[in-house]
């Protein structure tokens, strides 16, 4: 079980309360009508799936119901940090 720090509730909660929502920091093309198919496909389908440090979007589904980001090591499962949406990670490698 992860013990996850929710940056909105400002305390650790059990993983059971959370839900993972995939990779973080995926910006939607600002003008979808005029972007290329490649840009759109990359936004919709393509993800990094790295071995090591990964920035993920999670939601505190059974708590405050807010989204936030987690920096997690996909090899060790260690959570390096959690931060609010709109902020940038401090751990990048």
């Amino acid at each position: 079980m992860f013990d996850i720090y929710c940056p909105h509730c400002q305390e650790h909660r059990e993983e059971e309360e959370f839900h993972a929502s995939g990779e973080a920091h995926i910006a939607r093309p600002l003008d979808p009508d005029n972007c290329t198919d490649k840009e759109w496909a990359e936004y919709i389908y393509f993800r990094k799936n790295p071995r090591g440090i990964h920035h993920e979007l999670w939601v505190h589904a059974a708590g405050c119901r807010k989204f936030f980001n987690i920096t997690r090591d996909t090899q060790t499962y260690e959570i390096k940090e959690t931060y609010k949406v709109g902020q940038q990670p401090t751990v990048t490698e």
Binding site: S21, A24, A27, R28, L30, L57, F67, V85, G86
Partner: peptide, 8 residues
């Protein structure tokens, strides 16, 4: 979810 927030 996008980090780019466009506000009107």
């Amino acid at each position: 979810m996008s980090d780019a927030i466009v506000e009107k």
